[in-house]
Design a protein around this nucleic acid. Structure first.
Lengths: 239, 239
DNA sequence: TAGTGGTCTAGACCACGGG
DNA sequence: CCGTGGTCTAGACCACTAT
């Protein structure tokens, strides 16, 4: 037996998606839905809350609930560490640490990262090999102040992304995706030609406003892509 | 006065983010939290539901609730139509329709799109100019069966993305982001060199399993990027 | 001021799943 | 079996805001 609040959710969602109720239209008051479905107001409220999360409805005190204005195109992308993605796709994955050194953060980089010059960092360069082919260069900075255990970690057993995930829960992440030309160093490492298009992912992670890590991952354009599917119903109801 | 369920949410979130409670650790039973906070079980449940959505907690019947395993790096990216993005960034935006013709979908393309050959489509090519510079080529297919009004729409007033959003609520979207080399046609339109790196976004949209549109948008690599910030607390609590 | 949603209670029964 | 979470009730008071 399907829960009542899911039935309410689906009914209203269908009305909106079919165009039967248009943006700006008023949705029945909670009290009316209580009567229609013969349930309590909490149950109606749970359905409406899910519809708000789904982005289909806006609720306003005193005035009522309405079909939301058409939304921007928002998508959820899983931006995984390369090893996990490769394993899921059924490929073998390994990594090589190219550089590993402890430095202090210079003023220029500190400004870029919105951090403080002079703090100790671990700088790591790492090559990822998937299915026998070089698939990504990872250039990473880890703030030793936030992650002291990184000082003695070799990253041979698990690549930095995976190791960090197991060490530090993160509370905020920022991503940028760009297309760039391979510079000479990158081309040499990835065994591609200089100037070839590359997909460039930058990720900066914080734990409670303390920066954890900054990483720039460069993929050959012909060997990698990001994909995201947005199934709004599922995400709103966790089904 | 902050709602109780938000206080509970924040307290547990802090325990997890600080590392005080580690992945796999058991969270107090709902009954215990009811005692701790002197509130009803529904209130506790609301907080825990939000923590599940946030990805910090998993709940299991009979066994209890636990700190979730470290999550993959999931981010929410706003993939907006170019006009909206440009306006938000404070730039002037205009578009030119390069091609607009009604066709039937060929078998090869139909297979690519997981659609049916022979259906009527509207094919549109469109150039986006932001801040006076060509910033994107848009190559789009609209299924006239799903969106019959497109047959007579000129797309002069509003670019296709914006017009579609106002016409058709979508229920599923799939995105792919790649880096590619500019081919000759694209390079000419965008006034860049052939082979220059380009950021390529593919979006396919459905309304209740009926395909609405397929679009491929190509940006010069040096004039566009995607950015996403994930503030999990805000998204889970809608604050 | 009055109508609407926002939150909350103090219970209840049920479904699931480990022992 | 029985402890846990999943859902639900029939109310209640409060906060906000359009009028």
């Amino acid at each position: 037996m399907e829960p009542i609040y899911i039935r309410i959710f689906k009914d209203i969602e269908a009305k909106i998606l079919s165009g039967d109720w248009r943006p700006g239209d008023r949705i029945p008051r909670e009290h009316d839905l209580v009567n229609d479905y013969g349930c309590s107001r909490m149950t109606v409220s749970k359905a409406l809350t899910a519809l708000v999360e789904r982005g289909l409805v806006v609720r306003k005190r005193k005035t009522g609930s309405f079909v939301a204005a058409p939304q921007i195109n928002r998508t959820v992308m899983d931006i995984q560490d390369i090893g996990t993605a490769a394993t899921l796709a059924g490929y073998e994955h390994r990594h090589e640490i190219l550089t590993r050194k402890i430095e202090t953060l210079g003023p220029v980089e500190a400004a870029q990262l919105n951090s403080i010059a002079g703090v100790e960092i671990l700088r790591i360069h790492c090559l990822h090999i998937v299915d026998g082919k070089p698939t990504a260069v990872e250039r990473r900075i880890i703030l030793l102040d936030t992650v002291p255990l990184a000082r003695t970690e070799s990253f041979v057993g698990a690549p930095p992304a995976k190791w960090l995930l197991s060490q530090v829960p993160w509370s905020k992440a920022k991503h940028v995706i760009r297309a760039v030309s391979a510079d000479a160093a990158t081309a040499r490492i990835l065994k591609i030609d200089r100037g070839d298009p590359c997909l460039n992912l930058i990720r900066q992670t914080w734990q409670n406003d303390r920066m954890v890590t900054y990483v720039e991952i460069t993929h050959p354009g012909d060997r990698f892509q990001f994909a995201g599917i947005f199934h709004p119903t599922e995400s709103a109801l966790r089904q």
